[in-house]
Simulated scan of single mutants.
Amino acid sequence: MHETRAHIAASAAALRDELVPSDDLSRLSDRAADILRESGGMRLLQAKDLGGFEEHPNEFFDWVIQVGTEHPSAGWIAGVVGVHPWEISIMHPLVQEEIFGNDPDALTASPYAPFGRAVRVDGGFRFSGRWPYSTGTDHAGWIILGGMVADESGVPLSPPDVRHFVLPKGDWTIVEDSWDVMGLRGTGSKDVVIDDVFIPDHRVSEAPKMYDGSYARERRPGSPLYQMMFGLMFPAAIAAGTFGVARHAIRAFGDAMAGKVSVTGNAARTSAIQLERLACAEADIEASVAHFRASIADLYAFVDDGGEITLDQRHRFRRDQVRATGRCVEAIDRLFLHSGSTAMGDAHPVSRAWRDLHVASTHVCNNSELTYQAWGAHRFGGPIPPGVAF
């Protein structure tokens, strides 16, 4: 077991204790954030020369799943925030030094949606905008924001010029009370606002070059980890966060079944229907995780052998990834139908786990319909629908 996972295993009880406090705060509690930092898991995808482990991606995804099994919101943050060191490792060396030079454990948030507008000025851009869903921002020292280059009046250029802009803490404002949701409350995925902030050129990356692997080939040609493609790694981090929530839900259902007795005196732990539902759910979730890990391992072995990931491989991975996360949601839904009225209370662990999983399922990277449509269009030679980033 990697040392990062060993730390989470040793801190499991403490992490579980922070689940409800994090939900109540609508952000990750300070103690939960400390446990993630102390584990070192956020550095698993970080380049060695930046103080990271530069590990096989499955080491990172296993860590994310393990965190989420104990604390779903912490696991979601582990995936979303923990994948950023991978991207930063292929950014401009100056921004790498700014972020990690004095603190290899620095955390970075990221709403990538291109809601910002950037106007070119000498040496960089003036940047403004508002973004929802900024996961883990309360504990982040940096943020990556999506935006479009615009003309002097703020109208985006045509064709769109989408970029990623990196800002230090103090350049953005968190909109408190903007994360009032039914599940994953502890992620603190609040809105952030910036107003006419200067961003120097070295903190700006062109999104197409990030997505097509140009930056990775230019800046990290000797490392297979950075040839894995942004359009695979970020959805994979979302999938790992979802798997962690699903495993947490299985535990919640199992714990509830252990002590549940019906009005007729029948124990749930000996009910054929209840046991069948639990067994199928556990098997479906573990099959999904195994399929996901095998797909990642195959792609990593391919690039480690000098291959360049093809469009076909990217579509197939995304197809399989959304099917794996969807299978987890379906499995838990079948269980939920047999959880009984006592599990319907807002504070009940089963209800909380079910809500967390359904919020996780709404992330665009778990959107099966759009992904299947893109895969089908690719398979049969049709146009790829807009909105799918590969």
Results as ranks from 00 to 15, higher is better:
V80E: 06
M148Q: 03
F198D: 04
R355F: 11
P200C: 07
L44W: 05
R293P: 00
T362D: 10
S26L: 05
A47Q: 03
V20G: 07
Y133W: 13
A9W: 04
S39F: 01
R334A: 14
D17S: 15
F198R: 03
P132W: 02
A13S: 14
T264S: 12
W142L: 06
A324F: 07
D191M: 14
F165Y: 01
H202S: 06
S223A: 13
R379E: 09
L275Q: 15
Y215L: 12
K48L: 08
E70I: 03
E54S: 13
S368G: 08
V359T: 12
A297W: 10
L184K: 02
N102K: 13
W172Y: 12
W142Y: 12
S134C: 15
F60S: 08
A389C: 09
G244T: 03
G41M: 06
Y215V: 02
R251K: 12
Q66S: 14
E55C: 15
A353L: 13
S22K: 11
V193Y: 04
S295G: 13
I99H: 01
A301I: 08
V64Q: 00
A12Y: 05
V204I: 10
Q274P: 05
P21F: 07
V80D: 11
V64K: 03
D49V: 09
A6S: 10
P385V: 11
E206S: 13
I88L: 13
R352Y: 05
P386R: 15
A6K: 14
Y211F: 09
I90G: 02
V67G: 05
L184S: 06
R163P: 00
V350P: 03
V121K: 11
F292C: 10
V329P: 01
D284W: 11
G40F: 05
R379Y: 13
A118Q: 02
A249P: 00
V303E: 08
T187K: 01
A246C: 02
S288P: 04
Y211V: 12
T187Q: 01
V121Y: 09
P57G: 03
I144P: 00
D17R: 12
L184H: 03
R43K: 10
S295E: 13
G68I: 07
S11L: 00
D196C: 14
P72N: 07
